[in-house]
Design a protein around this nucleic acid. Structure first.
Lengths: 245, 245
DNA sequence: CGACACGTTGAGATATATCAAACGTGGTGG
DNA sequence: CCACCACGTTTGATATATCTCAACGTGTCG
């Protein structure tokens, strides 16, 4: 049940029932963390990886002045730091954005699992490559979109990912993050985020207040963010309400 | 010999002689491409992956107006689209930046290799995770650095990666890319890149003309780009001249 | 009730984009 | 050998997006 949402609705990497049981059996603990808590420090030697069961987590790097750039946001079902398994240490911190529940999977269990099951190993690999694909979409977002486009792109992506795990119906979802968090995601200042969110609201495209995101006009939101969900490798079932621009 | 530079000087993923031979044996062809040629189109079904032997390649996404955002630059020794093996199709294009020589590795050979050799499979996985770590550094670059910082960071990174494969001595290297390429890497306009490169030259930090990069003041270049090479997972041997800021 | 985090607004400063043009330079064909 | 062209680079003038600093609201919770 911890792995219920893992790789759900991803093209070409569906876990077999057998594989799911095997992976599930590797979980050695379930832990709760409060919002804002750091779960893994950059450089720390890792003995296990973290499967996010409930809540939102993020990964980030600090600049010299202590300003953060988020490099990933994780939703339930994500194997947050699976890349820490081959890499052994991480180049960034991992923290809870909201209060979270996580399941831990020891690396030595993954050793056994991947040795005995090359097909499952390839799916775990695949899951880390999805994260890399999301990194690339974020690069596009930061490199080529203006503030409104970045916010729109982020909200489209989050909606699509939450839909894939059954946590959004495509018109609204709950995400307990602040405008400051969005600023750290989009590479902008909180003040500017606030103004641009207001503009998007006034244009009747999307509202984002009190951690509730309501998508008023999905078509214009996608166009504004030049959002094309291809990079999420979702299957047809998940894509019902996520057409391309 | 094609794999000679692959994973060279990377911490914790040194290939054994045996593994290198096995990987080398998978190469089924060597091809040359002219500069600017697209090698893999987004969405195309892949049957093999590409090991870059000589020259520079890139990966990029287009925006609606046809402007490109580069999401990766590859140097000799990189397994450019190894992520295409588990993913099967790519979410971006792959192209030659300069004239290149590549070796191709069929995916069915990788199937056999990874089934028989879990340790090698983990190193291949690791290599795709290095690319993801570089993506994250690029996110930091785009999200938190100004134009001068982005260029400095990119040059530091490229220098470090080229040093790892023996193609830079830390004070200069040859990289046949244009200022427009740098603009597409840094998410800026070519005009602004030009002005900022001039400023870096006038400050006696670095020069970049006619595809020759000369690092005049490595310490200030690293500080300007807030560059910390941790994310490249280089071993001590490669790090001799790449201290942290 | 007060404290604190988060959100909102305004005015002015600054980095970067945009548009337009000129300059070099290497290659190519007449 | 020269004229010309394509391409990359360089420069100037102006426009605009975003930042910065400062202040004020607003809700929540002890």
């Amino acid at each position: 049940m911890f792995t219920e949402r893992f790789l759900r609705h991803r093209r070409g990497a569906k876990l077999t029932a057998d594989e799911r049981v095997a992976l599930e059996a590797c979980v050695d603990g379930v832990v709760n963390y409060p919002a804002r808590q750091i779960v893994v420090h950059s450089g720390q030697k890792l003995e296990h990886s973290t499967l996010l069961v409930d809540g939102f987590m993020c990964r980030y790097q600090d600049d010299r002045r202590g300003l953060r750039q988020l490099v990933a946001v994780h939703v339930p079902g994500d194997f947050v730091d699976l890349h820490g398994y081959p890499l052994q240490t991480l180049d960034h911190d991992v923290a809870a954005l909201t209060a979270v529940t996580i399941a831990t999977v020891p690396h030595d269990a993954l050793d056994r699992l991947t040795e005995e099951r090359p097909a499952l190993a390839r799916k775990l690999w695949y899951s880390t490559l999805l994260d890399a694909a999301i990194h690339r979409a974020w690069l596009f977002r930061l490199g080529r979109l203006d503030a409104g486009g970045r916010i729109a792109h982020f909200l489209c992506e989050t909606d699509a990912r939450l839909q894939a795990v059954g946590l959004s119906d495509g018109s609204k979802f709950v995400m307990g993050i602040t405008q400051t968090d969005v600023a750290e995601i989009c590479g902008l200042t909180p003040v500017h985020i606030n103004r641009v969110i207001r503009a998007l609201r006034e244009e009747q495209i999307v509202t984002f207040r009190h951690s509730l995101v309501e998508i008023l006009d999905p078509v214009r939101l996608r166009r504004r963010g030049e959002f094309d969900p291809d990079y999420l490798y979702l299957n047809d079932e998940a894509l019902q309400s996520n057409g391309s621009v």
